[in-house]
Nucleic acid binder design. Structure first.
Lengths: 194, 194
DNA sequence: ACCTGAACACCGTTCAAGT
DNA sequence: ACCTGAACACCGTTCAAGT
């Protein structure tokens, strides 16, 4: 019945290409597929679920990385919105810690995204850029305050955080594990005392 | 010339199935392919290069994980052979540090293996088992000596080490990066002072 | 100008047939 | 008992044809 209705609409109104509306709908489905299937979801399924031809999908997102960046952009914008709160903290290391916690939290729903986190953060989508800018600034601040060793690169931290969300044996989202591993990373970032 | 010779041998001696010799030859080629192509190398190519039918490959190694374990077993046995040396050290944390360094070193030649390191270490191949046993014992020792926080699991450490060999932007094997990231992990493992 | 999906290539996996 | 590779299924990617 409902399927019949959709078919009729498609026939009577030949899919007037409202690019904006169309893309938004695609993004919603895109995210849903990534949530259900993980970041290795088949492009075929994404296209089908997004009601878009596979060719159109490729034109909008020439690589899987672009797709991941688009799907993650909103979540990363949310991370970036923590800026004021984090800037208000006393400890720069604590600010970085909370940033990383938020990053893992907002990034965990796409299974396997962690492995591609550096790539996604380096994309030019606005949310990705904002989160990366904030993260780099927090790291720099902690280093200037001598709370983090000066030789560490932002990419090092992101790679380590990626490992956190990598499940040990496939499955099992273990919050305790995430917490203790983030603690290890944060404590390990401190300058070595001699 | 040499190719011709091989072809003749194959014809005159119809590949007498010396399973042992055959498997060893396969393993050599298997490792070569993983070195050249990374751990996602196509099974087709592995079979072809190993002069084995794809079906035979599947019978010997029903999953890619088994293949990875077989290819890594010798390297991991080498890691395990550090046992005496590491047991002789004063600091249990330093022993663990050197173990992890060795692990990264012997594991780095297969691009992408890091991500599957926990799986490989958990396989029942002898070298994998030996390396895992040693690693777990070293961690336990460091914890008993209060040099490592007691809530850490061996799998946590391996996951973090996996991140180390994960290149940030594809390519670039950077020894300095490996060293500082391993240092971050080791320092971060220390019990938190309060 | 934009969209579509058939068509091609490549790879994983199984299994009937061969020795 | 062991090996083989054709056959099938599935997925990524391109591009000629359609609107």
């Amino acid at each position: 019945m409902s399927a019949n209705g959709r078919a009729e609409m498609k026939k009577s109104r030949p899919l007037r290409a409202d690019a904006g509306e169309n893309l938004v709908r695609s993004l919603e489905q895109l995210k849903a597929v990534f949530v259900e299937r993980g970041v290795d979801a088949s492009l075929e399924e994404i296209a089908k679920r997004s009601s878009v031809g596979i060719g159109t999908l490729y034109r909008h997102f020439p690589s899987r990385a672009k797709l991941l960046a688009a799907a993650s952009d909103e979540q990363l914008a949310t991370v970036a919105r923590k800026e004021a709160e984090l800037d208000g903290l006393d400890s720069r290391l604590e600010a970085l810690h909370l940033f990383l916690k938020e990053l893992v939290k907002r990034t965990g729903m796409y299974h396997g995204l962690a492995a591609a986190l550096n790539t996604v953060l380096n994309s030019d989508a606005p949310g990705c850029k904002a989160a990366t800018d904030l993260g780099k600034r927090l790291l720099k601040g902690a280093q200037d305050a001598s709370e983090v060793r000066s030789d560490i690169k932002f990419e090092d931290v992101v790679s380590l955080v990626g490992a956190v969300s990598l499940s040990p044996q496939k499955g099992a989202r273990d919050p305790a594990r995430i917490n203790r591993m983030l603690e290890v990373i944060i404590e390990g970032l401190r300058p070595i005392q001699r």
